[in-house]
Simulated assay, not measured.
Amino acid sequence: MIKVGIVGMGIRGSLFAEAIRQNPFAEVVAVSDAFEQTLQRSVDQYQVRGYANVEDMFDKEEMDAVVIATPDFLHMKPVMLAAEKGVHIMVEKPFSTSVEEAEEMAAAVERSGVKCLVAFENRWNSPFVAVKEAVANGEIGKIITVNSRLNDTIYVPTQMLKWSKGSTPGWFLLPHATDIALWLKESKPVHVYAVGTKKKLVSMGLDTYDSIQAVVSFDDGTHATFTTSWILPETMPLIYDFKYEIIGENGALYVDLSDQMVRKAASSYQHVHTLGTPINGALTSAPSYMLNSFIDNIRLNTTPESNEAAGLLNTKLVHAIHRSVESGAVEYL
């Protein structure tokens, strides 16, 4: 049985704990969270040992793996501790919000020889899995351009996340969209030009961007556009709106994750969130498939689908986007 610890028991940490409970090859043995109430709730719910201090968990527990589900900007410390202890790592995206930290983390993982999966969950999301297969089969030819739009409702930065002022829609959302492009394309990003807007959230006391738009150029002369915001009205059918367009030499692919095939008109109109609907009690979401893949990487000694190198490249790209927003100039990776 693979013994797993979880750092950060918010929405994501709890989701991963449930996925581990359903995996026949793994078990949660300990959890860590800085908030006493969240920690105690998790200890009671999963009947495991809990630690307010993450160092104590690594010192006192025998763990084969750790799942790191802390806020965007707090991944480095647990990653470095895990690498030092020889504990396999699954860490939320972005790998880091700092290129320097990401490079140090990647180097530590490589030195230790542990397996590291960076949680780009859309690589396990069935619409994008189908897209990847179509591209790999050559059905649209060489990719010429990618256009992505990923937005959240204003509920996310103002209510769901306690730490949104320490992040941006660029760090919280863009890594999903940029990773898909990096996953699909054989070419590498070279430089970016981006702009950002600060108006709505600043007026509400949150000093962070409302939206960011970026054009990314690749080393094969192709380009991609990415737009993201987290100020959509709460009346949107779903909490997120994710649309993706891949245009190739011989065809195109279109993904719309907001249209999930079931539309309900009752007291209000909404799209029913069907992707990841549990079946016979079993979790079927992209995050749970990703978690199970990580457990399989450990027990079968295979390479994670999105490792520390993918995490580092994504951090370099999204960091360049933020630099361009600030400088108003083209920024190179």
Score class of each variant (00 low, 15 high):
M1P: 01
G8V: 00
G10K: 10
G13C: 04
F16I: 00
F16D: 02
E27D: 11
V28E: 08
A30G: 03
A30T: 01
E36D: 13
T38Q: 08
G50R: 12
N53E: 05
V54S: 10
A65Q: 07
V67H: 06
V67W: 05
I68G: 03
A69I: 12
M76S: 04
E84F: 00
I89N: 10
M90K: 08
V91P: 03
F95P: 02
S98K: 15
A102V: 12
A106I: 06
A119K: 15
E121H: 10
N125P: 02
A134T: 06
G141F: 03
K162W: 03
G166S: 05
T168P: 06
F172S: 14
D179Y: 05
W183F: 01
K185C: 13
S187P: 00
V195G: 06
K199Q: 11
A214I: 10
S217E: 15
F218Y: 13
F218L: 09
D219K: 08
T222V: 01
H223D: 08
T228R: 10
I231P: 02
A252N: 14
Y254F: 14
V262E: 12
K264V: 10
S267V: 00
Y269V: 13
H271L: 11
I279K: 12
I298C: 04
I298F: 01
R299S: 03
P304K: 09
G311L: 02
E326C: 08
G328D: 03
E331V: 07
